[in-house]
Design a protein around this nucleic acid. Structure first.
Lengths: 379, 379
DNA sequence: TAAAATACCGTTAACGTTAACGGAAAATAT
DNA sequence: ATATTTTCCGTTAACGTTAACGGTATTTTA
């Protein structure tokens, strides 16, 4: 997907030149042999200057370099991988999908990317940690750092521990990519994730569109596990709130509500309280993928005509969208985030391309009418 | 993107077996040599059975085949492409992007895919035709069919002519892929495009959400070039209409309107007529990418509070979304359609994988709040 | 000034596959 | 019986690159 072998105009022109000068009909693509011949050296020397392996006189080095430039040489990656003995290992450290279903998606993307670059001598090493256990993160990270990988993809959900990991990476000159969570002022190769505040803002816009009454009570629900880190939740809430303070401030009265989902009954109680109050909600914004828990409550209690907006294409959420209980899901291509994280390292380590540092996923709006085409992950 | 080289458990197991039996430490991956050794034949024979090149006794053939099966041999695609002398040519025939800006997008995807598979000896041959000139389509198609390509991607926008092209393809046993437009009951390898009716249905849902008054006049605008084929337009209209007949039939009064955009003044006149009438519109659904023409009218005439929904991420449309004049754009990943069309042929011709025949793109909903992340095409 | 070290460069065997070439054995024809 | 096919298979030179190995000159050291 990201492997470009551009054939520039210059290149084409030079191929034609070479064809004429060398009088060889087979010289369709410039190879290491062509530049060796042109420079009056052997392919060994060319390879030495290409890889800075030393043992070549400054003058010949420059000569070869200029011919490489002139002919617009690009290496044949197939031959390169075939002949090369260097192996690349990409280590991955993300929350365990068993305990947090969301992470199945980035993982799927990571694996898909890995399958593609396997033929270029790239190998994956996947480790997971417990989302509600900072020590497991530290432990696994240390294991990985000790194994001397070529590149490292991780979700820096624990701030302090992550800083230490980052410091170690910098020391080891190990390229690392942040996924999902972003930490500022780092030497990370890239970040792939979402713009949480903006997605909250968008959710608010959709909410605003969907509620018709002039003044409505809208609840922001934040389902969380007390021992797990909160990162996107607050940003999403912030974005949601900022919409209504900027755009339609007289339309909505906002209420924010934390719900501990480690105990099953807690959610029910909280929601009971809301629906029993005099401030009856016309809209609920659930700031993460646990929106299906709220939807389940809606179904059980036959609540209708309340707009429900949440996050992510989990199987449970898909079902509630199709039933019409959830109106909108915001989804930010988690598979793609994983996929692209791997390719960022591939581009950097193998192709020596520069990679974009900050990469936000599109904010997909999913509703009953278009969910069909988002259900199945296909890169 | 679609190149999978799965390493099954069986495969891993067998590698370990081979390691033990052959006592070779280097036997990490089963190659043609390994199966030659195991079958007591030469690599030439193995290659002959692998490619059905004949000249091999039935008994040895079966022997080799069973060992291939047993060891779970998968060819090394890099070495294959390096050594192979067979070149693949994929011909493409689509409307000229110069006359129809939409087609820049599929073309971009096609080129991106081509760049990726260039290293596997795949070459692209791109031809375009005039959207309002059926003969140009026929002419170019015949040229392509005469050039004996390995695969053919085209937009069958002219029905009758396309049928003839398809017949010719079937005769030549040439694999062909439909892009954008679908013709039923064909032997096409695949189709990549959009579900037009569903996108219209979705647009109607968005319209319904956005208009607040109980009874509203809504206009369906179909900007078209009289000499050019109409395909998606009517389906989108159909979907749009069907929503309001199914879901909120008492909310909207629908009006349909064809506009000839070959003369610049025609649109103005038609819109003037609408806005001067007693049935003032509260929503306009423009069924193709020319929605920017309507938006321009809105801007010029300072029309506010009328919901405008259209199609596709053309630069002009992007600007009107950002200005808040267009509320929604429906977009169906045209780049991806082009990209995937090429890869369908790659999968079929090179990898010998089976490919899905019917492929609809997701229906992306784009509004001011999320357009930022859809602007730039990145596969 | 001879010996040792260094700087520089060419040669070559891989990597896994393709496909042309040729040759031995078996089958058929004369 | 020999001559001629036919069947079947092994050998080998590519494909473009990597990287180890070894070999000249040239410079440095003793």
């Amino acid at each position: 997907m990201f492997i470009y072998l551009p054939c520039t105009l210059t290149e084409i022109h030079c191929v034609q030149q070479i064809r004429q000068t060398l009088k060889k009909e087979t010289a369709l693509k410039i190879g290491i042999k062509d530049i060796a011949k042109q420079a009056n050296v052997s392919i060994g020397t060319v390879d030495r200057v290409l890889h800075n392996r030393g043992d070549v006189a400054k003058s010949t080095r420059e000569q070869v370099l200029s011919i490489i430039e002139e002919l617009g040489y690009t290496p044949n990656l197939l031959a390169k991988s075939l002949a090369s003995k260097t192996k690349y290992t990409i280590s991955v450290l993300i929350p365990d999908p068993e305990s947090n279903a969301y992470w199945e998606k980035p993982l799927a993307g990571i694996k898909a990317a890995a399958a593609e670059i396997k033929k270029f001598n790239f190998e994956l090493q996947i480790a997971t940690f417990d989302y509600s256990n900072e020590n497991s993160f530290i432990e696994k990270a240390n294991q990985i750092l000790g194994s001397n990988p070529s590149g490292f993809i991780f979700a820096p959900v624990f701030y302090e521990s992550s800083l230490k990991v980052i410091e170690k990476c910098d020391q080891l000159e190990l390229s690392y990519v942040f996924i999902d969570v972003f930490i500022e002022n780092c030497e990370n190769l890239a970040y792939f994730g979402q713009n949480s505040a903006q997605s909250g803002y968008l959710a608010a816009r959709l909410m605003s569109l969907s509620i018709s009454q002039v003044i409505s009570h809208i609840y922001i629900v934040k389902p969380l596990n007390p021992s797990a880190p909160v990162y996107h939740l607050n940003l999403r809430e912030k974005g949601f709130v900022s919409y209504f303070s900027e755009e339609n401030s007289d339309q909505a009265i906002l209420h924010s509500m934390d719900v501990d989902i480690s105990s099953p009954a807690a959610l029910d109680e909280s929601l009971d309280a809301i629906f029993a109050s005099s401030n009856k909600p016309l809209g609920l914004f659930v700031a993460n993928s646990r929106v299906h828990l709220v939807a389940s409550y809606f179904e059980k209690n036959k609540i209708k005509n309340v707009i429900l907006i949440g996050y992510d294409l989990l199987q449970e959420n898909i079902e509630y969208i199709e039933k019409g209980i959830i109106q909108f899901l915001i989804c930010q291509k988690p598979e793609e985030q994983g996929y692209k994280s791997v390719f960022a390292l591939f581009n950097h380590l193998f192709l020596k391309h520069t990679v974009e540092k900050l990469n936000f996923s599109p904010i997909d709006i999913i509703m009953k009418e278009n969910i069909e085409y988002y259900k199945n992950f296909k890169i």
